[in-house]
Amino acid sequence: MLLLYVLTGLFLLLSLILDRGKTQKAIKIAWKKFINIMPSFIIMLMLVSITLYLFPDKLIVKYLGGENIYKGTFLGSILGSITLMPGFIVFPLSGILLKKGVSYMVLSSFSTTLMMVGIITFPIESEYFGTKLSLARNVLSYFIALIVAAAVGILYGEVIL
């Protein structure tokens, strides 16, 4: 995060020194883009706040820690697709789940879909890239996550072929 601030500050300063007019134009562009996407962002945050309430940590532990690894993997992928969590929550939570006995394969399907498939970010994505393309990307990403989960399961010896 700090890196982002330093980088932005540095580039902004450099830009100001090199060309004042261009810098002003850059800020204008930034502001316009920011305002344009704001409504979609607000809707996303609304959905996030509701899903996070509906799926608290405890519920996640309960569903992912089951006996059946395939069922867990499937539930993990569904949960990962519909929820959205920042990285600083996902991985500590995964660490906790691991200690509670949730398998690597389930964690992989959960965390990978969480990062790659975004039902909640869909309004934003389709705003930029259109509905069809965003749909295709999300569906394919879901399958990628399942393949990754399978690879993790095999390489950790959790599933035997």
């Binding site: 995060m1 982002l4 601030y5 980088l7 932005t8 580039f11 902004l12 830009s15 261009k22 810098t23 134009k25 850059a26 800020i27 204008k28 562009i29 930034a30 502001w31 883009k33 920011f34 962002f41 945050l45 920042p86």
Partner: peptide, 20 residues
């Protein structure tokens, strides 16, 4: 809160990118 810590900066970088 956590988004506003990131977004304005990210958009400034995008603006600079578009100009330069």
């Amino acid at each position: 809160k956590s988004m506003f810590k990131i977004l304005p900066f990210a958009f400034i970088l995008i603006g600079l990118f578009e100009v330069w």
